[in-house]
Every structure is written in structure tokens, then in C-alpha cells.
Design a protein around this nucleic acid. Structure first.
Length: 258
DNA sequence: CGTAGTACG
């Protein structure tokens, strides 16, 4: 019976959140694993006192394509057996979007999904990313692996997960293809942990900067924590920490007993 | 508009 507490947060700049004292707030929660997205730093740009937080091992997957863009990180009390920066069926290690940590008892994915806003090419790349992701998750669940997936999906799943669904349906974040992708993940045996415990609207994890959107709670639930069927009953709670500010996203998390 | 570096969400 091991407790496992994991948090996921799109920090929108790890160094800026560190300087502002916001990172301290999540490290003080004394969790086992913290997953960050949009780190926006190469490893050499991260100061030592940020890289080496007492009690944690840290792992980074920065973008090698565009400096100051994307990037994911994992801070973990226990050392994973292996760390990978792509799916096993594809080659995404330069993108700064994936950290796959195999702890033996379970595999944790920390993912910054493409937003795909803008060009048609970016949308295509995004759907490709979905394909490789789903392929990997299906393979792992079929061989009975315990899988956790957290991160910024850049997708609101259902109408309950955003403010104006009719208007949003034309925009990346709530396209029918994106929503269908999450349905496919669920059909592959994965569960949205937040909805195991909370069926209410107005639970968001992202708000646009400006226009007092956050104060008015005009946002979307874009960050998710999925678990494989094999882990579903180990999830004791799933939460959104909307009081933790700084980024345009707020942290989410799960408490489990493995 | 913020983050980071001149694009991207």
C-alpha cells in the first residue's frame, strides 16, 4: 500500500514561475511527482537551485527545434527505472513534448500536446501526434501495463468543460476531431480521473490572459489526468488547484494508493 | 496579453 501523489502543471515558463515564487507553492505540497509543461528553457538555462530541488530528481525534455518553446519536466522523489523523451513507436524526442518515466509498477507520461492553432500544417502535425500517442497507449494497455497520463492536452472534452461550446467548436481546443481523440483514448480503456469525482461545470484549468477572464472564470478544462483501467480503483482523489496563479493554466493532480 | 526571444499560444 503505497501512497502516490502526482501534480501536473503547465507553468508557461519554468524560470519565470520560479522567480515569482509560484513553484515554491507546489513543492511545499510535498508530492511524490511534479510534471511541468511549457518549461520554455533548455537545460543549461535552468539555474542550479531550480534544477536541484531538495528531495527530488529532475528530468527535462526541452524543444531542440525552437528555443523558448514547449519543453516538459518531471521532478520525482523516487528515481524512475528509465526515462524516455518520445513514444516507443515514433521519434518525437526533439519536440520537447514527452517525458515517459517507467517506475516498474507503473509508467507515467507527462505530455504537452500540440495546440495546433494557426496553420493547416500544424493541425496535421497535431493529428499525427494523436495517432502515435493512441497507438502507444493501446499497446501498453493491451499488455497489461499500469499507465498514468498527465499534461496539457489543449483539448476540452465535453460541453461542460468550457464556457461557450457552440462558439468554441470552430476553434482548436474544442474541434470535433480533438474531442473524438479523447473519446478514442477513453475507448482504449483510459479514464479521466477528474470526472470520476466531479461532474460539475465551471471547473477549468486554463483562462486566457487579460480581460479578467480568470476572475470571471471564463476558461476551459484543457489539462487532464488519465489512468489505465488497471489503475482506476487506486485513484482516491483528483483535483484542480485553481488558486495557484502565475501561469495561464493552474495545476491539477491525483492522489492514489497503489 | 505573457513568456521568451521575434514566434507562439
Amino acid at each position: 500500500m503505497d501512497e502516490l501523489k502526482i501534480l501536473s502543471w503547465n507553468v508557461n515558463g519554468l524560470r519565470t514561475r520560479f522567480k515569482g515564487g509560484y513553484l515554491k507553492q507546489v513543492f511545499e505540497l510535498n508530492l511524490d511527482i511534479l510534471c511541468f509543461q511549457e518549461v520554455k528553457s533548455t537545460e543549461d538555462q535552468i539555474p542550479k537551485k531550480l534544477k536541484e530541488i531538495e528531495g527530488y530528481h529532475s528530468y527535462f525534455c526541452p524543444s531542440k527545434i525552437l528555443k523558448g518553446y514547449a519543453g516538459v519536466a518531471i521532478y520525482s522523489k523516487n528515481k524512475p527505472k528509465t526515462i524516455e523523451k518520445s513514444f516507443s513507436n515514433s521519434d518525437y524526442e526533439n519536440e520537447g513534448r514527452i517525458l515517459k518515466a517507467d517506475y516498474g509498477d507503473f509508467i507515467l507520461f507527462n505530455i504537452y500536446f500540440p495546440s495546433g492553432a494557426g496553420s493547416k500544417e500544424k493541425l496535421e502535425r497535431k493529428f499525427n501526434f494523436y495517432k502515435y500517442f493512441l497507438d502507444e497507449m493501446k499497446n501498453l494497455s493491451e499488455i497489461g501495463k499500469n499507465v498514468l497520463i498527465c499534461g496539457d492536452f489543449n483539448i476540452a472534452h465535453n460541453e461542460i468543460d468550457l464556457v461557450n461550446p457552440a462558439r468554441a467548436a470552430k476553434n482548436p481546443g474544442f474541434l470535433k476531431e480533438e474531442r473524438a481523440f479523447l473519446n478514442k483514448l477513453i475507448n482504449s480503456g483510459y479514464t479521466d480521473t477528474f470526472r470520476m469525482f466531479n461532474g460539475d461545470p465551471e471547473n477549468y484549468t486554463w483562462w486566457p490572459y487579460g480581460h479578467n477572464c480568470r476572475e470571471k472564470n471564463v476558461g476551459m478544462r484543457l489539462d487532464h489526468f488519465f489512468v489505465s483501467e488497471s489503475l482506476k480503483e487506486t485513484v482516491k482523489s483528483a483535483y484542480i488547484l485553481s488558486d495557484i496563479e502565475g501561469s495561464d493554466h493552474c495545476p491539477i493532480g491525483v492522489d492514489m494508493v497503489l
